[in-house]
Design a binder for these strands. Structure first.
Length: 286
DNA sequence: ACTATATCCTGTATGC
DNA sequence: TGCATACAGGATATAG
């Protein structure tokens, strides 16, 4: 599941593959991934021909590929979106939805997406920062991040801390995997009210999140299966470094107690029953 | 404004 | 063997 490190791996791959190249042909094989383009699939394809890509950008889990004309191709990988770069005579990847051919007859760009939660759109004037991304908060790897301000903002929230970490309008880029990793490192229960956490602890938590995402990025991200791969189709290696996510029943790597898996927001949360104790308030709620 | 939940989507795993 | 169900979880619409 692509979170910030995985999206950044893809961004870097795209930078090497498409920067400066001119689109000659676009084929939309399934309408759903371009559903945000109001003109429909055919208009999407025609509108892109003749444009030249500049250096891809990212904020949180959003990715956009600016064109030299000031517009941009906006992309979100959702759960299972992939960009692949391959010679035109190579077979299309499974679940391939959109194919881009270039005027230089070099490798094609292919967008594949099994579950189609992701998608592509044309952002008019979006080369710097697409309007569609303006509501997304700055992410933890952005040099412009004001950590103290973020800590203060988080402390105004009454929701459980994991909900806040997953809220892309407060801090972006964190998904279920890295949220659980950061909470384990900071020894926090996911349901601890954000406004009950000392500023110093929140600073530690965000530092942990930033560290774990930086380390994941360095090894190509986290892959559990073929749903996340880089533009060459290769997996990342961070799964072996996970301390919490997916470790139900396995010993906590700090204290040895068996890790728990609990339902949370239609997904799962993994935590240590001893290092990450529930807050009193959560117990009252039942 | 904030908070919480339902929804979209399909391949894989599991249970009967 | 088949059928049904649970699960994975991004962002967003909607309800409270």
């Amino acid at each position: 599941m692509p979170e910030l490190p995985e999206v950044e791996v893809v961004r870097r791959g795209l930078a090497a593959a498409v920067d400066g190249r001119c689109i000659a042909e676009v084929r939309v094989l399934h309408p759903r991934p371009v559903r945000r383009h109001l003109g429909g699939p055919d208009d999407f394809a025609l509108s892109l021909v003749g444009r030249t890509f500049a250096e891809p950008r990212r904020r949180g889990k959003y990715l956009w590929l600016p064109f030299t004309d000031g517009d941009a191709l906006l992309a979100h990988l959702g759960m299972s979106g992939q960009f692949r770069v391959d010679e035109a005579d190579r077979p299309l990847p499974q679940h391939c939805r959109v194919v881009f051919g270039f005027s230089d007859d070099g490798p094609q760009l292919r967008f594949a997406d099994q579950r189609m939660f992701g998608g592509l759109a044309i952002s008019v004037g979006g080369a710097e920062l697409p309007d569609e991304v303006a509501h997304i908060a700055i992410d933890l790897l952005d040099p412009q991040l004001d950590l103290a301000a973020l800590v203060s903002r988080i402390r105004t929230r009454t929701s459980g801390i994991k909900r806040v970490l997953l809220n892309q309008q407060i801090v972006s880029g964190i998904g279920n995997i890295y949220a659980d990793e950061a909470l384990w490192l900071a020894r926090l229960h996911y349901d601890t009210p954000a406004n009950a956490i000392p500023a110093a602890t929140l600073t530690e938590l965000l530092g942990a999140a930033r560290r774990v995402m930086t380390e994941a990025l360095a090894v190509g991200g986290t892959s559990f299966d073929s749903l996340y791969v880089n533009v060459n189709g290769s997996s990342g290696y961070f799964e072996r470094s996970l301390n919490a996510y997916g470790r139900e029943g396995l010993p906590c790597l700090r204290c040895g107690r068996p890790m728990l898996r609990e339902p949370f927001m239609n997904r799962s949360s993994f935590r240590c029953p001893s290092c990450q104790r529930p807050p009193r308030r959560a117990a009252e709620r039942g």
